[in-house]
């Protein structure tokens, strides 16, 4: 399915895709990222017909007053449909975490509203599950008790909370570790527990704030594929924050790109890469086309991204065989 691109006749392994895309993109005729294959277009058609789970209306966040006033973002509006996977991407400081924290009810918007199933929300609640970058498992509870936490908060009996928690732990493949404490788990395992804990509450939407940001890149790839498998099995809508282009493309249906100066939505892109996703697609033309576009939106066009030379005095007497 994935079309292999080659430079000078050799198949290329995308060791450093960001750089490579920038190199290849001008040389190869990439398709328009807005052009959707018929089956992809049909899928978006089906998504649009589903009810809207989360509606964000004219959201604005500012800090400070008067001349000190700093607008993080304004006029952010978006609808997320049932079982849609939407990623928010943007450079650091664009307020993507702030956005998801406002949706979670952990921060207040300066103006604008957030509706969940047509009800305005302002405080945190179990209908919006959240997975944080820092795991945030309760260290004094075992894996099972961590997953049971939300169920008990909703007033379930210990027995039914226990059996429900077990099935969620099974789903993320940690049945053997249900009686372990968080400090005994690896980062990826902790994050799987955190996902199970959030999903056990059967939230309407799962908010994920750079959940794999603290993991090494191999673990991150595995977690991304786990997440897609989980998303397939569970009736859940996902709002996913990331700064990683590949992660955004690999996971999402739509991608919302936030910018800085001025802050706000740059573009909402329908992901042209067909599902089911696999890492091989990273070298398909539509993937590269989308990635080139995201790269432009976030890092600026090729001319703008000329690396800045540091005003550094020469501090070595060694030969110039390093660059």
């Amino acid at each position: 399915m994935a079309q292999i691109l080659s430079v000078e006749g050799r198949p290329q392994v995308l060791a450093n895709p960001g750089r490579l895309t920038r190199m290849i993109a001008p040389a190869i005729d990439l398709p328009d990222y807005r052009q959707l294959a018929p089956e992809v277009a049909a899928r978006f058609e089906r998504i649009r017909k589903r009810p809207v789970i989360l509606k964000v209306h004219e959201l604005e966040k500012t800090f400070g007053e008067g001349p000190e006033r700093h607008v993080v973002f304004d006029h952010v509006s978006l609808d997320i449909h049932r079982r849609e996977f939407l990623t928010v991407i943007g450079p650091s400081g664009c307020g993507k975490s702030t956005l998801v924290r406002i949706v979670a009810g952990l921060e207040e918007a300066t103006s604008g509203e957030v509706f969940l199933d047509e009800h305005a929300v302002s405080a945190p609640g179990p209908d919006r599950g959240m997975v944080f970058q820092g795991y945030t498992l309760f260290p004094w509870l075992t894996v099972k008790r961590n997953v049971m936490f939300g169920l008990e908060m909703r007033g379930k009996s210990t027995a039914s909370a226990q059996s429900e928690a077990r099935s969620w732990i099974d789903m993320v493949g940690l049945a053997k570790f249900e009686n372990s404490y968080p400090h005994e788990l690896s980062g990826g395992m902790k994050q799987r527990v955190a996902i199970a804990r959030a999903l056990a509450n059967e939230p309407r939407i799962l908010l994920m704030d750079e959940p794999f940001g603290a993991l090494d890149s191999l673990t991150r790839c595995k977690m991304q594929s786990y997440l897609l498998q989980i998303w397939k099995k569970v009736d859940v809508t996902i709002l996913f924050i990331t700064h990683d282009l590949d992660e955004a493309i690999y996971l999402s249906d739509r991608i919302l790109v936030l910018g800085t100066n001025p802050g706000g939505v740059r573009e909402v892109i329908e992901n042209p890469v067909p599902r089911p996703r696999s890492p091989d697609q990273a070298i398909s033309p539509e993937y590269l086309a989308l990635k080139t576009r995201l790269d432009e939106l976030i890092h600026g066009t090729a001319e703008e991204t000329e690396e800045e030379k540091l005003p550094m005095a020469r501090m070595t007497l060694a030969g110039d065989d390093v660059e």
């Binding site: 599950g129 944080f132 820092g134 945030t136 309760f138």
Partner: peptide, 23 residues
């Protein structure tokens, strides 16, 4: 972050103190 996590799991008020802040 632990308190925020508990809030997104539906914990509030005195139960949040008893089940999260104290432990």
């Amino acid at each position: 972050a632990l308190i925020e996590a508990a809030q997104t799991l539906g914990s509030r008020g005195w139960r949040l103190v008893r089940r999260v802040i104290i432990p």
